[in-house]
């Protein structure tokens, strides 16, 4: 029995029934057992559609900017989603009063590609066991797996699986994620390579970018009405998917997210070409932390670090790097 799911449904029904919110953003069942989809619940009776489990991966904060002014919204928020919501509040994309953050303690989301790495997942049936394990039945038989063994990389290193800001909290407190101390290990790995090797690595990664912009669209912090890639005057880069233009797209998007990215990892999950987008964002997040002691998405009143300065900030010091 999924206590958290029941609690989410009850909370949603209550908030809608009392008229406290006009809409609940949550998760409902997808077209296959290992996917959920963003749910837009507007009536208390529909709260039964809401689900909770290890496949609730989407960052629902991405829908908030478009909902501004459309009545109060409750958002079922994991730690990352709550931080994204805080970021949007900081940047005045949605007023604090318009959002009710229903925080959920999270133990991580499954990486679907690791669920059945050699199989097709077609016809697979998944049942959640009481002890947090999953029973997976496929054409190759039946096995039981621990969710903890199948987590997405971003979840394993998550530092905020308890929502830091919330109006209500659902579920029992959960321990921190096992590798939370290693949040920037991937950055260190790449930093150990020489500049030429890093250059080659990133160019090889972005070469296959399709410029579908799934990364951008899945990101709650990318809400510009006209993205820089769509501007004709000035024309920053070509629509053509050349390695150089793709390189610039990813570099600029990473920079635009500096101090704003909450490492929810959705950009990387949604990339059809498996480009390790969040490795770039993480690197800048580490810089922001080291230079300014700032972590995104924790304080709705805070001014993002690139929107301000201190007279005692470090001087460039004469030489690059």
């Amino acid at each position: 029995m999924n206590k958290v799911e029941t609690a989410i449904r009850e909370t949603a029904a209550r908030l809608l029934g009392e008229g406290r919110v006009a809409l609940v953003l949550g998760y409902e069942a997808g077209s296959v057992p290992f996917r959920t989809v963003p749910a837009f619940v507007e009536r208390a009776a529909d709260a039964e559609r809401l689900v909770w489990g290890p496949f609730c991966t989407n960052n629902l904060a991405v829908y908030l900017p478009k909902l501004r002014g459309a009545g109060r919204v409750a958002i079922v928020a994991k730690g990352c989603d709550a931080r994204s919501t805080v970021g949007l509040i900081q940047e005045h994309q949605i007023p604090r009063e318009q959002v009710v953050i229903v925080g959920v303690h999270c133990s991580g989301m499954v990486d679907v590609d690791r669920l059945l790495p050699d199989g097709s997942l077609a016809g697979v049936a998944i049942a959640a066991e009481a002890d947090g394990r999953l029973t997976v039945e496929s054409g190759d038989g039946r096995r039981t797996v621990a969710v903890g063994d199948l987590l997405q990389a971003r979840c394993r290193v998550c530092e905020y699986n308890t929502p830091p800001v919330a109006d209500e909290i659902v579920g029992d407190a959960v321990p921190p994620m096992p590798e939370a101390a290693g949040a920037f290990a991937v950055v260190a790995d790449l930093a150990r390579l020489s500049a030429a090797e890093r250059q080659a690595f990133w160019r090889a990664q972005v070469e296959r970018c399709l410029r579908c912009y799934a990364c951008r669209e899945a990101c709650p912090a990318c809400y510009c009405r006209t993205c820089f890639v769509d501007k004709a005057a000035p024309r920053w880069l070509s629509k053509a998917s050349t390695t150089d233009d793709n390189w610039m797209f990813h570099a600029v998007r990473a920079f635009h997210l500096a101090g704003r990215c909450v490492e929810c990892g959705e950009c990387e999950r949604v990339c059809p070409m498996d480009i390790p987008v969040s490795k770039l964002n993480r690197m800048l997040d580490r810089e922001i932390r080291e230079r300014f002691g700032y972590v995104a998405g924790l304080d709705p009143e805070a001014v993002p670090p690139l929107g301000t300065f201190r007279p005692e900030d470090q001087d460039p010091g004469g030489h690059g790097g």
Binding site: P38, L210, R211, C212, Y213, A214, E217, V270
Partner: peptide
């Protein structure tokens, strides 16, 4: 819930 990306069309 569509995010208006091009993943479906480009693939």
């Amino acid at each position: 819930r569509c995010l208006a990306c091009g993943a479906c069309s480009f693939l």
